[in-house]
Design a protein around this nucleic acid. Structure first.
Length: 593
DNA sequence: GCCGTTTTCGGCCCGACTGTTTTCAGTCG
């Protein structure tokens, strides 16, 4: 966890404790500050060392919070937070993980019953004590009992690679319903985020009841959490699925709204406000001055006054996303860009990138065979790549060295032998086949394969497989400077939900990579997606090439390419930024340079 | 607690759902 994360987590805890105490507005300020500190690209400890004014440069961080940040770095604690913890000594994260229990409930239950842990919460619920507390009742108590085991499992987010096929399945099922006019996935799954909190399904229909009924009847659902007139939530195999039903005429506005991200939508709404427009999930509306001027408290008593506040004003757009953005003077924003990283401004002045498209990648230059830990022969992998539609393939089996245990990697001698075999397969192949290796980068940046051999191979991918913590910038820079290294493979070495991987100064690495004709990989394996979108954007802006590889260990892994393509799009990649959109000849020129 | 080309004070994103309540609070996304 970076120190930015560390501070952000503390501020969020601060917010929860304030919330539990019934404090208004402050919690939101703390959460906003936490979010901005977490997203801040630089190191918070550096700002803290410079003093409160520097910390206060971060959006949403003012005098009070910046002094707490500095205090934390100087003394190791935030005194006010310590006091709040003493006043309310509860396991906040564990308790609020129970569906339906938030900070305020935690505060009330501590006040009334002294509950501090999940075990105490469960005991109190079983004893029937919770329904006696003011504001709680029998149903709330039963809900707590129903949800407490689930909360104990401490759910992590699903990988995109697991959730996406699952979302496609749900969408297909819903789309086949008679009452369903339109159906789409929204939320983070539509933005292709590496991890997914839940699967959002949006349906356009004039018969919401039938749609909700169809949803509830889906075979895969384990249990339904809530089911109202226009939305329902359920769990299927521990994945939360949220359904929304909207009128087909408002489908575009709803899809825009539910695709997010939250930050993107806030920026879009602010742009609307500047234009005297209002955006919500029902559409874009223009304030109607003549009637809104009479909007006073007495209106509540007047019959015939617009009671449908959400749709108040003159409707400007709602049916399609394109119309919604157009009404705000913006180009349609591809979902992968909707993270408030400058896309709102770019869409407004017509400078959105012309993003890489699926189908433009022409080959894979990081793959494995049964010479190392792959499951197939060189010929099978080459045939698989051709069937997939690739123009070329590089065989880059693991070399022995740091991180390659159990005899997985091949020796220099075996590599020499393999080169001959790759060339003989290549002679009969329909596509171009490159020799190669995935060499290991030791902690000091040196490689595990002899230089003369590296010079003879077409493609050298250099990757770290051991000592994957701490700052890896020097290590990767050293490897990128090696004259025969073409690709830095899965640069941070992260494993989503399992390990963070190396801290890398992407700007510095990308600078060196650009100067040395070394490409930085977007590893399309859903457990990695490394580099991620934010880092890709930085690398490209610095001038480096990226390359999208699947790291395939079998022919069916070539299908994972789409996760890499959409990750590249999240990094604003255009076709020319991506090395393997080039044809084989021009790729060869890059490799030989 | 933060923020400001209509404000240094008075607002803070907001709608749906549930459950506990007789008009609203808490939670969630």
């Amino acid at each position: 966890m970076s120190r930015n994360d560390e501070i952000a987590t503390l501020l969020e805890e601060f917010a929860d404790l304030l919330d539990a105490n019934g404090v208004e507005y402050k919690p939101r300020a703390y959460r906003r500050a936490a979010e901005n500190i977490r997203d801040y690209p630089g190191a918070i400890e550096g700002l803290a060392a410079e003093g409160e004014d520097s910390v206060g440069e971060i959006d949403g961080v003012g005098d009070a919070i910046s002094s707490k940040v500095v205090e934390y770095f100087e003394t190791g604690e935030i005194e006010e937070l310590t006091e709040l913890r003493e006043e309310l000594p509860v396991e906040m994260d564990a308790l609020t993980a129970v569906e339906g229990v938030g900070p305020k409930s935690v505060g009330s239950l501590y006040e009334a019953l002294g509950i501090t842990t999940l075990d105490e919460l469960e005991a109190a619920a079983e004893a029937g004590e919770i329904q006696e507390v003011s504001g709680f009742g029998a149903k709330t108590e039963q809900n707590i009992l129903d949800n407490i085991d689930f909360a104990r499992e401490a759910h992590e987010r699903s990988l995109l690679g697991e959730a996406r096929p699952y979302g496609d399945q749900i969408r297909a099922y819903m789309a086949a319903g008679d009452a369903v006019e339109e159906c789409a996935l929204g939320g983070s799954i539509r933005r292709w985020r590496p991890t997914i909190g839940d699967v959002d399904v949006l349906v356009g229909s004039t018969d919401a009841e039938a749609v909700i009924e169809r949803f509830a009847g889906w075979d895969e659902l384990d249990r339904v959490i809530e089911s109202g007139d226009t939305k329902a939530s359920a769990y299927a195999d521990d994945v939360r699925v949220d359904l929304r039903v909207v009128d087909p005429t408002e489908f575009g506005a709803a899809l825009q709204y539910f695709t997010g991200s939250k930050d993107h939508n806030v920026a879009v709404r602010n742009r609307a406000i500047e234009r005297d427009l209002k955006v919500n999930e029902y559409g874009v509306f223009r304030e109607v001055r003549s009637t809104s001027s009479s909007r006073t408290a007495s209106d509540d008593d007047v019959e015939g006054v617009e009671d449908d506040d959400q749709r108040a004003g003159e409707l400007v757009a709602s049916e399609s996303e394109e119309a919604v953005y157009d009404a705000l003077g913006m180009e349609w924003v591809p979902p992968e860009l909707r993270e408030n990283r400058g896309e709102v401004e770019a869409a407004a002045d017509g400078s959105l990138p012309d993003l890489l498209a699926e189908g433009e990648v022409r080959g894979d230059i990081h793959t494995h065979t049964n010479w190392s830990d792959g499951g197939n022969t060189i010929a099978e992998m080459v045939e698989g790549a051709a069937d997939f539609g690739h123009d070329y393939l590089a065989v880059t089996d693991h070399a022995t060295g740091p991180g390659m245990v159990g005899g997985v990697g091949v020796s220099d001698e075996q590599l020499r032998e393999q080169m001959g075999e790759v060339e003989s397969v290549a002679a009969d192949a329909d596509i171009d086949v490159f020799t190669g290796v995935e060499a290991n980068i030791a902690a000091d940046g040196t490689l595990s394969v002899a230089d003369d051999l590296l010079a003879d191979l077409d493609v050298v991918v250099a990757s770290s497989h051991a000592a994957l913590d701490g700052d890896g910038t020097d290590r990767l820079v050293t490897a990128a400077e090696h004259p025969d290294v073409n690709v830095i493979g899965h640069p941070t070495g992260r494993y989503l939900n399992r390990r963070e991987g190396l801290d890398v100064d992407i700007d510095r690495l990308a600078d060196v990579a650009a100067a040395n004709d070394t490409a930085l990989e977007i590893n399309a394996n859903p457990a990695r997606l490394d580099l991620g979108g934010g880092a890709v954007k930085q690398a490209i802006e610095t001038g480096a090439n990226v390359v999208i590889n699947t790291d395939a260990h079998s022919p069916r892994n070539f299908d994972l390419l789409r996760y890499g393509v959409h990750t590249a799009r999240r990094g604003w990649a255009e076709t020319d930024d991506v090395l393997n959109t080039r044809d084989a000849d021009s790729l060869r020129k890059f490799l030989d340079a």
